[in-house]
Write a protein that binds this DNA or RNA. Structure first.
Lengths: 295, 295
DNA sequence: ATTCCCTGTTGCAAATGCGCACGAAAGCCG
DNA sequence: CGGCTTTCGTGCGCATTTGCAACAGGGAAT
């Protein structure tokens, strides 16, 4: 049973009763239809049709085939409709993967997107390992650093996150405003646990801040932020999450070399789909205010 | 969605994850698989697979196709098993068509056949119009007269039914034994209603018996038999249904020209099937005694 | 780090399958 | 009853499809 096209041909013959009619429906020559039937019957070893000059009538086996193939035809029609329609509707899973620490920025936007497109099931993955777009593990990835240059990936600039050194109001009142980088003696810092961190300001910190002054380290940016807020020490925080916080004081303004550039990455094939396009548009529309600050 | 083979190819790719694996299972070249996928995706306008160097992974659309085609494959496998097996098992409908008047002879045999093959559903059709084997209306036909010579039909001699003139014991006692054909005056006959009957003795009767002596006519042979039994008159009856009946007296022995030859006719294609063969064999085995009488 | 193997991709030639044309047989209708 | 229409059947030439072989790229194992 290893030729589904012949089954399809036999199905039309069984349905219509004539080779000519089946040929017309199938858009092939009636000779082809006869050859398909002959081949199928030869391989099955059973006659599917009674041949006579007024057409073909299905035998019991042919009628059995008719029933099965009828169901198959329906199934395929529905499948086709689903698949063709799927490209134009915003529904199903939408997998977004990103580096940790952007949750505070992204989750509200994702929530808004989901509210606008209720048929979407969002999956927001922030894992250590890089999810690979090539395997279809994610629809959209948000990457940091230099622009990714994988083939088959569509890369667009997303945001440039600026970082500055912040301290809690309480800390500044107690220790005074340090002059950075000239007079930092006696000051305490909060930093990243990962000594090989690829955060853009990490190198500046390694070079400028003596290790013994970094009294709190964590890999979780939310923990870092909490530590700064608690007055443990000064630390790098994204401006987007600090400007409206009255408990934080900008100890040193953002520097260009501390900027972290974010990229929106999608797989070439998925990039064209309505679903991904809708998501990218929503993302851009709702980060407009952040983008203006940067330029 | 007008190429089921491409769906089958895509199904194997989705199932196995690689073009090479699918090609091996399908027994075609890798290149063919790729071309099928490309053609299918182009026609659908939707990517079914994410291509990467380790193989193909199905997109949502591809996974949808996988589910549907999986079911289809199962259906076709079962269909194939049924169709292939059907030829070798004695089950399903068995349609037998014959001329009227053989019921008394055939029905007991049919009953025995059905008892031996309980999976068979018998249909015994005795209609005025000829059921056509070419259209698959019947599996086996029992025809009378000269051997049918339709192409695509397999014809075998079945039985030669002998007819004789019978009268009821009561009738003979009252009217005496007539000398046939010399002295028939005053005798009454029972005959067929159809003046153009093709029964072999019909012509003899038309030529020999004056019409006014035929006092009872019917198209139903059972009615004729009942009429003879009731003493209405003498009439032609098959020897097979009279030899063991003590109420009937053979008024004139069978003549060769009164013999009715019966033929077993099957369609060429159906003749080979186990079901039909089993029926024909059973039929011959259980009419052996009748055949010996004839020869 | 390097080799090897497994993956997909592509150009070219052969082959299978297709369409066309013609023929024949049987039902239909005047 | 005879032309007409509709049906299937088949040989032949061509085109699409297939197979082959060489290529390329990435992962994995050594």
């Amino acid at each position: 049973m290893d030729n589904w096209d012949e089954i399809r041909t036999a199905y039309q013959v069984a349905r219509l009763g004539t080779v000519s009619g089946a040929a017309e429906v199938l858009g092939v020559h009636h000779a082809t239809v006869i050859r398909h039937i002959d081949a199928l019957e030869k391989r099955m070893g059973v006659k599917l049709f009674q041949r006579h000059t007024r057409g073909y009538t299905a035998t019991e086996a042919g009628q059995d085939l008719l029933r099965v193939a009828q169901a198959t035809d329906d199934q395929f029609s529905q499948l086709s409709a689903r698949i063709k329609g799927r490209g134009n509707e915003v529904s199903g899973e939408l997998v977004v993967t990103t580096i940790g620490g952007l949750s505070q920025l992204l989750v509200p936007i994702l929530a808004g997107f989901q509210a606008e497109y209720p048929d979407v099931q969002l999956r927001y993955l922030t894992s250590m390992r890089l999810f690979r777009l090539e395997y279809g593990e994610a629809h959209v990835a948000i990457r940091a650093g230099s622009p990714p240059q994988q083939p088959d990936n569509v890369v667009q600039p997303f945001l440039t996150l600026r970082s500055a050194i912040y301290g809690s109001k309480d800390y500044v009142e107690r220790h005074g405003m340090p002059k950075i980088p000239e007079r930092m003696a006696g000051h305490r810092f909060v930093g990243l646990d990962d000594v090989n961190s690829r955060a853009p300001w990490a190198q500046w910190m390694r070079e400028t801040v003596p290790a013994h002054q970094v009294v709190f380290r964590s890999g979780d940016t939310r923990a870092v932020r909490q530590a700064v807020l608690s007055g443990v020490g000064m630390g790098f925080l994204g401006t987007y999450e600090c400007t409206q916080d009255n408990n934080l004081v900008e100890v040193h303004p953002p520097l260009p070399e501390w900027e972290s550039r974010l990229w929106l990455v999608t797989h070439m094939d998925l990039h064209r789909t309505t679903k991904v396009q809708a998501f990218l548009r929503y993302l851009k529309d709702h980060t407009e205010h952040l983008r203006e600050e940067v330029e």
